[in-house]
């Protein structure tokens, strides 16, 4: 295969990235892990004259906990960094598990959270769980920093609120009283499959009463979406399996999936029902655990 020619820059500071973006405009694209970008360049579905590599920007790597702020994840943090993070394993195993079920091991070693979010692929695995946990995106531009809730970040397939000369630097998961969170990826193979449906939830319980719930769906709308009707059906109610089923039905009604080679809209809608129910149950009963479809081999 063939990768078209481009100019390559590897700036030393984030500010330099912004000024290169300003200089080259729409001809330039940021190269983070490149696991998606390189494939699209090879397939010829996109073409850029300039790639701006983030390889020198080590400050964008890593996961830290900042008192009063929450868990801060640098945009260049790889999927396997999420999987192996002690902080996440302790606080939000659901994020580690969501990362764990992405692609294959080699891709997880290179692909970054920033790339996964900025690509704005509707089936991306990380946005739903981050949205369910109320994550905030920190964006740097020539005018300085701004923050946007991740849930408002996406504007369409491949489209975000990022201006041409802006870069995502961090994702922050604010401290929260949630009881549990969870992401279920439903793919057609156990590795190396895109999500046909992705459902994330986070729930705050007070005794048996659902005090708060956030549900985020992937691959069933032009952007990762909150299932607000489903949430409304839950909040303030006593937890029962029947209630979760009702929430599942509500979520399946408010999403807007399309039919493609991975599944029909009808199938996706029903899978939203099933996995919303299952994800909620895991969030309520198992805390911030990972709960996924896979059954252990050799049982």
């Amino acid at each position: 295969m063939y990768t078209p020619d481009f100019d390559y820059y590897a700036p030393q500071t984030v500010q330099e990235v912004c000024s290169l973006l300003t200089q080259f405009g729409s001809k330039a694209k940021i190269l983070s892990g490149g696991t998606d970008l390189m494939v699209k360049l090879k397939h010829g579905t996109i073409d850029y004259e300039v790639l701006i590599s983030l390889k020198e920007l080590n400050e964008l790597k890593g996961i830290t906990y900042q008192e009063g702020k929450g868990v801060v994840v640098g945009a260049r943090t790889t999927h396997n960094d999420l999987v192996n993070s002690d902080i996440l394993n302790e606080k939000y195993l659901s994020i580690s598990e969501a990362a764990h079920h992405m692609a294959g091991n080699q891709i997880r070693n290179i692909g970054t959270i920033g790339g996964n979010i900025v690509n704005a692929v509707p089936s991306a695995d990380l946005p739903p769980i981050f949205i369910a946990l109320g994550a905030i995106v920190t964006i740097l531009g020539p005018e300085g920093e701004r923050t946007v809730p991740l849930e408002d970040f996406f504007t369409g397939p491949g489209k975000t609120v990022l201006a041409q000369n802006e870069i995502v630097t961090y994702i922050t998961i604010p401290d929260q009283p949630t009881t549990g969170s969870n992401y279920i990826k439903f793919g057609l193979r156990r590795s190396g499959a895109l999500a046909v449906v992705g459902v994330a939830s986070s729930v705050t319980m007070e005794g048996n009463i659902i005090k708060d719930a956030r549900i985020a769906l992937g691959a069933v709308a032009p952007v990762p979406m909150r299932a607000k009707n489903a949430e409304a059906a839950l909040i303030g109610k006593e937890y029962t399996d029947e209630l979760l089923e009702q929430a599942g039905v509500a979520a399946s009604q408010e999403c807007s999936p399309i039919s493609d080679i991975r599944g029909s809209a009808e199938y996706r809608r029903d899978m939203v029902r099933v996995f919303t129910k299952r994800s909620l149950k895991a969030s309520i009963t198992k805390g911030h655990s990972g709960e996924h479809l896979e059954t252990e081999h050799g049982k």
């Binding site: 193979r189 590795s191 190396g192 499959a193």
Partner: peptide, 10 residues
Amino acid sequence: AEYRLPTALD
């Protein structure tokens, strides 16, 4: 990716 040979997990 989309012509899915089973993986070791399948």
